[in-house]
Amino acid sequence: MFEELRDLYQEVILDHGRRPRHGEKLACFDAEARGNNPLCGDRIDLTVKYGPQGEIAKVGFAARGCAISIAAADLMAETVAGLSVTAAETLSRAFQTLARTGVPPALDPPLAERLERLAPLASVHEFPSRVKCATLPWHALHAALAGNKEASSE
C-alpha cells in the first residue's frame, strides 16, 4: 500500500527525521535566521558558524515540523558544511530545482556529489503540498547568509 511512499520516506529520511545530527542551535554562531511556513506552521531556527576563509563551517538548527522538513534541514546542514557562501547558494538553487522537478540540474563534480547526497528528497516533487517542507530550510539558509532574519517558504 505504501510502496510509492517508500520513495518519499526513504530510510535515510526517516532516520534523519527521527534523529537529526545537527538538530540543535549552535551556541556560538555568526549568522541566524528563522524560516516559517505560515500555512502549515513549520518553523526552523537556523544558526551558521563561518570558518576562517568565510566558508560555512557549521550549521545547527532547532525545528518543528514533519519528518520531511527535519530530514531536509539535517541533510542540508550536512551537505553545506565546508562550502563557500557562493557554492552553498548554487547548491541551494540546484536542490530547489531537484525538489520541484525531481531532476538534478548539472553541477560541477564537487557540488554534484553533494547534491547526490540530497537525492533521497527528490521524490517530494510528486507531492506538491510537501515540496515546501523540503525547501524551507534552504530558504532559511539563504536568509541567514544574506544577513536577513526571516524567511518564508511562501
Binding site: 505504501f2 511512499l5 518519499l8 520516506y9 502549515c40 513549520d42 515540523g65 514533519c66 519528518a67 520531511i68 507531492f127 503540498s129 510537501r130 517542507c133
Partner: peptide
C-alpha cells in the same frame, strides 16, 4: 510517532 503532516500524507 509521526508529525500530523506525515500522518495526512500517509
Amino acid at each position: 510517532s509521526a508529525h500530523p503532516h506525515d500522518v495526512a500524507t500517509l
